[in-house]
Simulated assay, not measured.
Amino acid sequence: MPDETSGDAGEDKADTTPRATASGPGRVLVAVYAIFALAATSRAGVQIATNFHQAPVAYALSAFSAVVYVVATVALARSGRTWWRLAVAACTVEFVGVLTIGTLSVFDRAAFPEATVWSVYGEGYLFIPLVLPVIGLFWLRRTAPSAGR
């Protein structure tokens, strides 16, 4: 096994690859994101296929949340600086989405005649959509790449 301090790893060392986000507790995080990706994709698919005309905005938001969960799952499961950045972006979009849609759905129920994954801050999913991106961003901070040189 090559020593990381040896000259052979010079180019890799300059890359400052982050620690694997899918290692240790990150495996549980990836699994939860994968479950939400599957749930949101299934929900959006059924909603769009059967009743899209009833609540197109809500169902489009469900589809958007599904895409965010899929991207977050894949990015968290992969290693490397680019995947880490993509995971941060996905978790941030998710958090902003949950806060925005959650707040709008609380104050203007008429705008959301049908629930989305993020309605009322993820109430239909035990508020996990509200907590999950916070945990994800915390984990990503712990696995952040060190400053490049």
Results as ranks from 00 to 15, higher is better:
Y33A: 07
G124M: 05
P18T: 09
T143K: 15
W139P: 00
A34H: 00
A37M: 03
G97Y: 01
I135F: 14
A60M: 07
A77N: 10
L76P: 02
P129V: 04
A89D: 01
A20L: 12
T17K: 13
V106H: 14
L130T: 13
V96A: 07
S79V: 12
A20K: 11
W139N: 02
T50A: 12
L76T: 02
A111V: 09
E123S: 10
D108C: 11
V68W: 06
L130E: 13
A111L: 10
R149W: 10
S65K: 02
L29I: 09
K13S: 15
Y69K: 06
E4K: 15
A31I: 00
S105C: 10
Y59R: 08
A66T: 05
T16D: 15
G124P: 06
G80K: 03
S42N: 13
G148E: 14
T5R: 08
I135S: 07
A89Q: 04
S79W: 10
V71H: 04
S146V: 11
T73W: 10
R81A: 10
S23F: 06
I35P: 10
A72E: 10
Y69G: 07
S119E: 14
I35W: 10
V134Y: 00
T92Q: 05
T73P: 07
F64S: 09
F107W: 12
W83M: 07
T50C: 06
T100W: 08
P145N: 04
A55W: 00
V67W: 05
A9F: 14
R27C: 11
R19I: 09
P145T: 03
A90Q: 02
A90F: 05
A49G: 12
R149S: 15
T50Y: 02
R141V: 13
L38D: 10
R43C: 09
F112D: 01
G97N: 05
G136H: 01
A55N: 06
P2Y: 09
P56I: 00
L140Q: 02
V120F: 15
W118I: 09
E4P: 14
V93M: 03
V98L: 12
V67E: 07
G10S: 15
Q47R: 03
S105Y: 12
R27G: 15
T21F: 13
T116C: 05
L99P: 12
G97C: 04
V68F: 14
F107T: 15
S6V: 07
V32R: 03
A34G: 07
T82M: 10
S6H: 09
G45F: 00
V106Q: 13
T100Q: 15
E123T: 12
V28S: 06
H53K: 11
A147N: 08
A37F: 00
A14K: 14
F95I: 06
A89K: 00
D108I: 07
A58Q: 14
A87E: 02
V46S: 06
P133Q: 04
E4D: 13
R142L: 15
T103P: 08
E11W: 13
G136D: 03
G124W: 11
T143H: 09
T50Q: 11
P145V: 01
R81F: 09
P113M: 07
D15I: 09
A37Y: 00
L140I: 01
V131D: 01
W84F: 05
T21H: 09
